[in-house]
Design a protein around this nucleic acid. Structure first.
Lengths: 191, 191, 191, 191
DNA sequence: GCGTAAACGAGACGGTACGTCGGGTCTTTAA
DNA sequence: TTAAAGACCCGACGTACCGTCTCGTTTACGC
């Protein structure tokens, strides 16, 4: 069989170089001064190659993030709300803290700059990360660990809000203590 | 007496026109496509006049916000935590909701684009808005309405995080119900 | 074979459009009100393209002039001083008179405005046009048609001075009569 | 008597300061980078004061020139063409050479930039300086020292052309030797 | 001396053009 | 067909000066 399409195949090397260049440039100067031209130069790639595969800076950052982000996609299911919550939050914070806080901030900015991107980011990125928490809480409610009157959505707002707020305000670190503090608060609110 | 400095005085009319133009342009096309030139054109003002008084787009937005923002500066002091919290939150949300959510989003974006602005925004704008809540909670703790073990800073993160998160994710409205939901949650955590 | 360098080649069409636009704008409003932006607009070309290939307005005018200027570069060599001088002067004046007087005036102005340009203009443009006259006179001296005591450089000053002075003062036309009058004067001085 | 008009009289000090500042700035950076604002700053004078009395940069330079220029206005009349010519030329060149070559160059440039100024400059400045030579030559013709066939205007073009050309091309100095060389040439052409 | 009046410094104003940067597209040669 | 190279049009940047304006202040004259 084989039958790959004809012509020169896409260069995986170029793809990696672009993502790596973007990440490094953001670390150096911040997302605000990131330019496609600088990425192309640093990656040793032509601008055209970038525009062939990505729609803009935000798209590259998104791609880089999916690449480095480990799986927060599946909710833990230990049978205990406290354990599930603690694991979920530690994992989420570890994920953000690594070197990704800068990248998340970049996407946060883009959300306010490009309403098209904002829409897809909200229904895609944000909602996807919120889903496991929701599942976890629903299972806990079925076990009776969460009061039926509790508004699960407000819980989500409080939790993710606190996470993003730390990225935004940077007034305190995103560490394990913060994860556990949030876990305690959530348990209290859920009861 | 009096003796003002010589030279033509600053035009208050130009100042107002710039702020108004910026706000209207953001409402029309979003902060991402806001340009100094467009502001100048719309306001019937020269670019130089803008650069004479403001350092950039973010500075203008900040100024516009202070102008329209009513006083959230002073904490209510009714003697009851619940009442204070409710008043404070309703006021804060009313302030954000008006037409200011867009402007706040713009500042949020700028925070990620310009680290210099970010610093002054955090220690200025954000911290200033956080202060009344802090005072209010400390008074309540002295009255015994807040458990001494409660971490007041985490409470702040949760509350303001939730507010900003709604602006960011726009998945639900910033209304009085949300204010009251947050009040209930906070009371529960404080106790 | 062949192997030209990669990348999009320079647009000859853009180049011509720029030169033509500059010439027409000078004819319309004079060099004083010529702007790079107007040239770009009229030529349907971006400013960047202009700055990529020319260093400024004067450089463009110089280029346009070389383009339109026929060859005054080679000295006539008929064996007779009178004939050589007459041909040289008629040619030089025809060259200036065409539509180039405006352009020459522009370069004249630039000489006084930009000392860097002045230097290259003197050693390049001016000196190059002076050379054929010098050769022609030296040949004539060898034939005994020019007195050995005659200062060839002063002759050059007188001749080119008169030409430029007419451009500058515009009090009388640059025509064939003037060319012949100068020829007669020069012959008299040379003898 | 007296009866001057009421109101504060014009400050002679300000006038001198402006002219001096303009001259010094031209010497330092050339006419091309001369600005009204720089003159005002250097002279310790407000822009308004400059615009009240002069119409622009060229007008100031013209004023400064008339100030420093000694009287070339009257033709010498010794009874001998050679003597008259020599005196006239030495005087003219001394006048130009002093520190005025820069200023003359500036006016030369302005001529090409502003057609309104050009007209008044030609009929005023240039023609006025040409007049004494014309008178001197006419007197000599009446004495029989100039051939009646000689075209006095072409003589003027050659002489003033050579002077201006040295300013323009700066390839040789404006000194007494040059004045005497021109005198000899003119005598030869006149005979 | 006191009011009128012009000139003065300071400096903000609406503009125009500057020269640069980056965006996204297009056109070439090479793999 | 993809890639690197690099020229293209376009729009905005932040700056420099333009010539005008509006202030508070100063300096003359005529009443």
């Amino acid at each position: 069989m084989s039958t790959r399409s004809p012509g020169r195949p896409r260069s995986e090397q170029a793809r990696q170089a672009v993502l790596a260049a973007a990440v490094r440039l953001i670390e150096e100067d911040g997302y605000g001064s990131l330019t496609i031209e600088a990425i192309a130069l640093r990656a040793g790639v032509s601008k055209q190659t970038i525009y062939r595969w990505w729609s803009g800076k935000a798209d590259i950052v998104l791609d880089a993030l999916e690449e480095s982000s480990s799986q927060t996609a599946t909710a833990p299911d230990s049978g205990s709300l406290e354990s599930d919550l603690r694991v979920f939050l530690r994992r989420a914070i570890a994920d953000m803290a690594a070197g990704n806080a800068e990248l998340l901030g970049a996407l946060l900015a883009e959300t306010q700059l490009d309403s098209g991107f904002a829409a897809s980011f909200r229904t895609g990125f944000l909602a996807r990360r919120r889903l496991p928490l929701r599942e976890l809480l629903i299972r806990a409610r079925e076990r009776g660990e969460v009061a039926s009157a509790t508004d699960i959505e407000v819980l989500g707002d409080l939790l993710f809000g606190a996470l993003w707020y730390r990225i935004l305000s940077a007034h305190a670190p995103l560490d394990r203590d913060f994860a556990d503090g949030l876990t305690d608060a959530l348990l209290r609110l859920a009861g």
